[in-house]
Design a protein around this nucleic acid. Structure first.
Lengths: 338, 338
DNA sequence: CACTTCACGCGAACCGGTTCGACGACCGGT
DNA sequence: ACCGGTCGTCGAACCGGTTCGCGTGAAGTG
């Protein structure tokens, strides 16, 4: 059931069917109707692969997401969902590509074999070989996050520096003096993950500005690590009264650790950080946090990518988002425990 | 940089290059080396689209996931990750397809336009028009969950009936007599979602067997709904001492509701259900639950689909999984509060 | 030395679309 | 009656691979 079959049954040539479908050349009403009728009868749909080969575009974008096996955070799920939805609105499909252990291989699949027209790179690193590689090939992509050289690139990022700083100021304003920072896992920090680095920077600088006593920690992406991390924090400095975290997946564990050490949140201890709202709301008390706008980021990334694909020579664009802190219930004035 | 270019530079014909690459016909060592050398120099990779057109297989599978806009649960994320990983091991890519509002349209894209060789259908319903449609077309797919007519189909399912029953027995063994059931949202139940129905069935039958007094509730897929649901439960019957839930996303809200009504878990109130272990571990106390083996389900679904694609005439296969209940800390003997 | 056998490589056709150049029919104008 | 232009359609080439049938030269055999 291909275009030739339709042409045969409608008594016209293949090209006429093609033009009737695409509208790129005029076709008389009579022929168009006849063709449409045959198409409806047979339920014909043009083969996407053949079309892709002919016009050199796959109408597919690649979503390169973090190593599987590692834990996914909730934010990533929301993000993937919104990318798929936004892409559908522009008539693009989304192909998932794990950039895991075998990242070269899947990268080759996507790019070398031309399976996709463009890509969205999640979990960017400051020195990101994937991004450099794509940039060198002039392959259209949008990064989620800024590399160390954000100029001239296409990206959608969260201003982790500003957000972490905002958390610090929020706590300092409440009177907290001894504050801990719970980062993503150490291996990610060492690998140069942007959020981990800039978040740490923002935290450290703002804390220095406000004269706070701080300690910083790395924490695995799961509840058990969160719990262990709190134990370390309170062991290292029992007078700590607040923490800032970027680690969504450890959140439940952080709260459990605090509860088990007898700290009541927010009376004895305040918790805040950068977390998607759905997840901030799952803990008790609900987390006061800068809400990661995962849905918006996904949508914007797709918009940018589509724009880049449509106008390959347009100037690079980006969005740096800095959502405000949503006050919920996990922070309170320090000193009640002093 | 196509196969013709390689052929030209290596001084052979296009078909020889093709055979050298695929190994489907013998090629002399000399020519093979020469060709390989040119390929390495130019970094050539065969175009996936052209290959797909020629041999009629896209090497891509479609993952049809639940309506976006609705909340995703953590289990789904793990599942998607493991599907991508398992598919990569078989040299398949994964194309995401939202079966949302415009489900016909995206269905047409995937199947009508032949973008994928096969599909995995998530969140199956008892009477599932998508599954029926695919079955009628004889299109290779694997369902996650059983329809009302599971015979003759390919699927990977969780035995929600047995799991919910196991939860009931666990609670009954602990002495609980008044137990609530927290299901997925009402619209999903009405739409005929398999897990919601079979879970409810299993719960109801086991409760009747054990002579328990029960109430069943539907609950939105978010923390706020969970909290509201607990309030309803305790309002309807303040003597309720335990609940069973299938609703992963509401879990945090359920715990908050219990805390706010003064119930201590597990001393005053027991909670159990069917939840992926990562999420069961994020609440405090950690949830005693039948751990949804999302990773295994994803892997098996891919294995089944690949098998079906390789041997289209083989007999249908399926896996019905019934993981045991993992004892954690959210259930305890009833009666202390009596 | 003539004859088969085999290994190797080539050319052409094909997958199912898109697109370009050309051509015939019909029109109105002089 | 002839000419130029427009409209609608057709055939052929092309996208980049795969695959089938056949030809050719070298090796093996009696």
């Amino acid at each position: 059931m291909n275009i030739g079959e339709i042409a045969r049954r409608a008594g016209v040539s293949r090209s006429t069917v093609s033009y009737a479908l695409s509208g790129k050349r005029p076709v008389s009403d009579d022929t168009r109707r006849k063709i449409q009728q045959v198409i409806d009868e047979l339920g014909y749909r043009p083969n996407a692969t053949a079309r892709a080969l002919a016009n050199g575009r796959t109408s597919t974008i690649g979503l390169v997401f973090p190593p599987a096996g590692n834990h996914y955070t909730g934010m990533q799920l929301d993000f993937i969902g919104s990318v798929v939805e936004a892409a559908a609105a522009y008539d693009y499909d989304v192909l998932l590509s794990p950039s895991g252990v075998d990242s070269d291989r899947s990268f080759q699949r996507l790019l070398g074999e031309r399976r996709v027209d463009g890509a969205i790179l999640m979990e960017i690193r400051l020195e990101d070989d994937r991004a450099e590689h794509l940039a060198a090939l002039d392959f259209p992509f949008v990064a989620i996050g800024r590399t160390a050289q954000p100029d001239g690139g296409w990206w959608v990022g969260l201003d982790h520096t500003a957000l972490a700083a905002a958390c610090v100021h929020h706590l300092a304003d409440l009177g907290h003096r001894r504050v801990a920072f719970v980062n993503r896992p150490e291996q990610l920090l060492r690998a140069g993950y942007e959020s981990a680095h800039r978040g740490l920077d923002g935290f450290t600088k703002a804390a220095a500005e406000r004269g706070l006593t701080v300690r910083t920690y790395c924490c695995g992406d799961d509840a058990a690590s969160g719990q262990a991390c709190v134990e370390r924090i309170l062991h290292d400095d029992p007078a700590t009264t607040a923490l800032v975290t970027l680690n969504e997946a450890a959140l439940g564990g952080l709260f459990r650790g605090l509860a088990q050490s007898g700290r009541h949140v927010p009376r004895d201890f305040s918790v805040t950080g950068v977390v998607a709202s759905r997840w901030a709301e799952t803990v008790t008390p609900q987390l006061t946090a800068a809400d990661v706008p995962a849905e918006e980021m996904g949508r914007r990334a797709v918009e940018l990518l589509v724009e880049r694909l449509d106008q390959p020579d347009g100037p690079p664009r980006h969005h740096l988002l800095a959502p405000p802190i949503s006050l919920r219930a996990s922070t309170g004035p320090a000193g009640t425990a002093t």
